Computed example of a mutant assay.
Amino acid sequence: MTVELDLTTDPVDLTAALVDIPSESGDEAALADAVERALRAQAPHLEVVRSGNTVLARTRLGRPSRVVFAGHLDTVPANRNLPSRRTDGVLHGLGTVDMKGGDAVMLHLAATVPDPKHDLTFLFYDCEEIDASRNGLNRVERDYPDWMTGDLAIVCEPSNGVVEAGCQGTMRAELRTTGVRAHSARAWMGVNAIHALGDALRVLAAYEPRVVDIDGCVYREGLQAVHIAGGVSGNVVPDEAIIRVNFRFAPDRTPTQAEAHVREVFDGYDLTVVDSAPGALPGLTAPAAQELIAAAGGTPVAKLGWTDVARFATLGIPAVNFGPGDPLLAHTQQENVPTDHITRCADVLRRLVTS
């Protein structure tokens, strides 16, 4: 069944329409098709390009500055939270928060602001909720690098309608201990690798994370054990054990510096970094960022978590998070967004891009 989207309708209604088109990661084709059709039909002022299940659109008006908006089309798997429904000023359903409310605001702006004061780029991409290697922005950066450039990038992830600046970096590492197997009835003949993790667990329990203020935004670091594995059977002294740790680090550290810190904390252990992604500095001094802050009101806060703003920051583009919905409800069965969040975010971004 072909679904037609009306991009000029109220952004709340548009959010509900987007939610009602299932788009679990890897299965975004139907939604990408609908977005592409609507942009081509209702926004003739935009250049539109399709790349897999990513849809790109932009103005080319020769403005002295460009703002890039980014939003992913995919969701986590449904959990008895489709289709959308409304109760007392709240829109419920999968993706209302993460992040079809933000997508709806972007699409509404794309179609209804043909003469913005900044040139505008809109990136609607696939596979954000799964392995980073499949993220559609990788393909955009490789095949259409000029579409990633601008004076400010706004990732419309949920932020409670507050400007969330930058983001934390993230690193996962494994600590491995080895021992000697033996029958548990003759344990003195072996060396227990699980017991050897004890010191590392005590280090984690006593660890005091940094709290870092960068341009008035406070980032809280965290080093946590997130998985532990070991053991052979119920009557064998184990000869191998692993702790997986996650380090969320402030954006004033590079991944190299973050790794050095983790290795220092666990000095003497066999440690392997599994993956790592840099954070993003706030970038609030950019003129377009200052315009957004003025339009949104309030005080910017640090983004505690990793988002695709880091991709733009790596390219030297100031980037912030700004979108409707409470990020704490993302990925939950109870996912919902107050409709006035959507309306307010649409109004703020319209002020940003119009004279």
Rank of each mutant, 00 (worst) to 15 (best):
V113N: 05
A319Q: 03
D6L: 12
W188T: 11
I342N: 04
N235Q: 11
C345K: 09
P64V: 13
H331I: 14
T59L: 03
P282C: 07
A296Q: 06
L31Y: 00
P114C: 13
E264D: 14
A310G: 06
N192Q: 09
L223V: 02
L349V: 07
D151K: 08
L271H: 03
R37I: 07
L73E: 03
A225W: 01
V140A: 11
M99A: 10
A289R: 02
W188V: 12
V90P: 09
D27S: 05
C167F: 09
R344M: 04
F266H: 06
G234M: 09
A104S: 10
E157M: 05
L18E: 01
P251D: 05
L201R: 12
V90K: 09
A173P: 02
A165P: 08
V180G: 10
V3L: 06
L328M: 12
I293P: 01
D119V: 06
A205T: 10
A185W: 02
L7M: 02
D88Q: 07
Q257Y: 05
H72M: 11
G283F: 05
P116D: 02
N336M: 14
L175W: 09
V97I: 13
T112L: 12
T332A: 13
T254R: 06
G283E: 02
H45Y: 14
V301L: 07
A165T: 05
N336L: 01
T307R: 05
H227Q: 11
P11A: 06
V12E: 04
T75S: 14
G268S: 07
W306P: 00
V262G: 03
D20R: 06
F247T: 00
P114I: 03
A132C: 00
L352T: 03
L14H: 09
V237N: 12
V226F: 01
T299V: 14
T177F: 12
T332V: 10
K117Y: 02
G230F: 15
L328I: 08
Y125S: 08
R263V: 05
R181G: 15
A165F: 06
S84C: 10
A206I: 04
V212A: 06
L14R: 07
R63N: 12
R142C: 00
R181V: 15
E174N: 08
E291N: 01
A313Q: 03
C167A: 10
R344C: 02
A241Q: 14
T343I: 04
V226L: 01
N79C: 13
G150I: 08
D199L: 10
F124M: 12
R60I: 01
L175H: 09
N81R: 15
C156A: 15
R311M: 15
A70Q: 11
V226Y: 00
A193R: 13
G279L: 01
I317Q: 05
G298K: 04
R253F: 12
T332L: 15
V353C: 04
H341R: 08
H92I: 09
A193K: 13
A111Y: 14
T256W: 04
I228C: 12
A200N: 03
T339N: 01
V320M: 04
L284T: 03
Q168R: 15
D213R: 11
I214R: 10
A225T: 00
D27W: 00
P22R: 06
D252R: 09
H331W: 14
A70N: 12
Y269M: 07
P77Y: 10
A153G: 02
R344E: 08
L39P: 13
D119K: 07
D115P: 01
P209A: 01
